[in-house]
Amino acid sequence: MKRSRIIAIIFIIAFVGFFGSYSAWNAAQPEHTCASCHEINPSFHSWQTSAHREIKCVECHGTALSNGLHSLQEKGNMVLMHFTGDKHSADIRMSEEQILAIMDACIRCHQTEYSQWASGGHSTTYGRIFLDESHNQMEQPYWDCLRCHGMFYDGTIYDLVEPVSTSGPWKLKDDQMAQRPVIPCMTCHQIHTENDPYGQFAQRLDHDHAEPVVFDTRFPAVALYLRSDKQFLRADFLPGVDFFHNGQKINVSDDPLQRLCIQCHAPNFRREAGSEDNRTPYGVHEGLSCMSCHNAHSGNARNSCVNCHPATSNCGLDITTMNTTFFNPQSEHNIHFVSCDDCH
């Protein structure tokens, strides 16, 4: 046999062996593979108690091969850290590209939510947010813009758009960014939930405390990703704040999901309802949550009226044809703020 033949055979055996073990690796239960590495262990344990515990790691994260070199590099680094003892190993974080790659997986299983999201305002892109002439002329792009749109962006505003000033023309440094979504699913959804593995220990602490220490067992479906902290905060821990109208405090729904909305649809520093991008209702709909009318993903509110009307109409009229922005966007009676006095 020629030498080159032998080399080829060795290569083939190695090749088959490699793919054999590699596919076995990917098919196995995560506790025997991914999670056997302690760098990944926390993620494994949070997954175990999450809504997605039936779903294998590879379904979302892909495998080293399907996910491209980015993930390989990451795994390589992990191996390296494992042996060099780099102490920051517990803080593995995904890049924006990886977050968006994982989103492809979400879409496979959650078609309905995806198409709703795609049809609504939240599927907006870097192009639309950062190349808006009138907006940029009014206020130059700066770091805080990324708080509410572009929270997973890996660089700074200077890496994203130029010039960083109020006089254009503006362009994105990387053209390909233009179509990227700025509010992907993971803005509002945390997959690796923070169920407290400490629960089991806490039960052994049988103190005579004034208050029993309560631990969560189930994580709510919604959490906000905080760019500043590179962390999620679950919706029920977001602050519910007081809102004012004409100097008077108004009733505000304590729905945790509304607390999520007002983080971005936020008021001015005086917390005036309806200021800036805020839509906290006062008037006839005071105290209602955004979620009473809006679909979380499409933003559609047009189908909600029938849930409460006509049963609750004071005027005995069809509310959908009354003079509000619901009937006519140009109406001076904004559906969020209209009150009896405005019409009577």
């Binding site: 690796w25 080293a64 390989l72 390589g76 191996v79």
Partner: peptide, 30 residues
């Protein structure tokens, strides 16, 4: 969101080595 595929042989080898590395070190951290 394009999925990159390993493009050339050098990268493939790099990938294989890393994946093997991953498999070999496995028992050490169970």
């Amino acid at each position: 969101m394009s999925h990159q595929i390993i493009q050339d042989r050098r990268e493939f080898l790099k990938a294989s080595i890393m994946a093997f590395g991953g498999a070999i070190m496995l028992p050490s951290c169970l």
